[in-house]
């Protein structure tokens, strides 16, 4: 297996942990200020506090995501940008694609090559006008340690750092990772069930993907079995309104069922029928 360039995951996590050890600390302000001051200052900060340490970068093949993002595009990659992300990482093994250190290295290289500006990392995904610059200024000039800490957490999440939410951040929170994994699941499952890549992508829209990926990376990871996930997708495709109403309960029931029944070996179609029954009983 080829090795790919990535930040040592232990060092990457320690970097986040140190930053989050005290809310509103000088250390946090220093990060925010460097992010606000632009590329050179931010890279200098990373060099001083992370990259200059010995053995922090595991050398290997580098992947360069050669695309100049707008801020909005970085936060919510539209479909054509998702295609660019998917294409760029086609050759990379899934193990690397789930590695926080790999994505951290990708984001730093994107900043180095002006594909994104460091302030994008601070954008607030929940606000329409809350640009990274706005969020950074707001935090830097604030006495509210919670606000400062939240901004630091947002930056770490946008770089794929695991400290704020663990390794699952790559699948759930981190914009580029989410886009990649949604396409990866759609591609994989289109070879397993009778739905096209586009149909699955559409079923796994932002809301659908969020729901499934949340479950897959918690105790309900049972649903990531190919046959089980296939059954869920077939059901969702036929009953798109069910997502909000009862998908969570359906997944809970499936997980419970799996204790005694090996639903992972029954076909997606049989699982779909099983889910239809579960859903009917929930109403």
């Amino acid at each position: 297996m080829a090795t790919y360039k990535e930040i040592d995951n232990g060092s990457w996590k320690s970097f986040g942990k140190t930053l989050l050890s005290a809310k509103g600390s000088e250390r946090q302000i220093e990060l925010l200020q460097s992010c606000r001051d632009g590329k050179d200052a931010f890279l200098q900060y990373l060099n001083n506090n992370l990259l200059n340490e010995k053995n922090v970068i595991a050398t290997g093949k580098g992947i360069f995501l050669d695309h100049k993002f707008t801020e909005a595009e970085f936060r919510f990659p539209p479909i054509d940008t998702q295609q660019i992300i998917w294409d760029a990482f086609q050759e990379v093994p899934r193990q690397n694609m789930g590695s926080c250190g790999f994505w951290g290295s990708i984001v730093i290289d994107m900043i180095k090559h002006d594909c994104i500006s460091p302030d994008y990392l601070a954008s607030n995904v929940n606000g329409v006008n809350e640009t990274g610059v706005y969020m950074l200024d707001n935090a830097i000039n604030s006495d509210d340690s919670k606000k400062i800490d939240e901004c630091v957490r947002r930056i770490l999440r946008s770089m794929g750092n695991p400290e704020p939410r663990g390794k699952r951040i790559i699948f759930n929170d981190f914009y580029l990772g989410k886009a990649y994994w949604r396409w990866n699941w759609s591609n994989k499952m289109s070879n397993e069930i009778n739905l096209s890549f586009k149909e699955i992508l559409s079923t796994l829209d932002d809301k659908g993907y969020a729901k499934f990926s949340e479950k897959m990376h918690t105790g309900k990871s049972y649903i990531s079995q190919t046959n089980t996930f296939g059954g869920l997708l077939l059901f969702m495709n036929k009953n798109p309104d069910t997502l909000v109403k009862s998908m969570e309960k359906i997944i809970d029931n499936l997980t419970y069922l799996s204790i005694w029944k090996a639903i992972e070996i029954q076909s997606p179609e049989l699982t779909q029928a099983e889910i239809e029954n579960l859903a009917a009983n929930l109403q």
Binding site: F171, Q225, N227, I265
Partner: peptide, 17 residues
């Protein structure tokens, strides 16, 4: 006989009969 493999970091499960 059935065996399920779970690659935790990637939430990937595989089954072999």
């Amino acid at each position: 006989f059935s065996v399920t493999l779970f690659y935790k970091d990637n939430a990937e499960r595989q089954n072999f009969i």
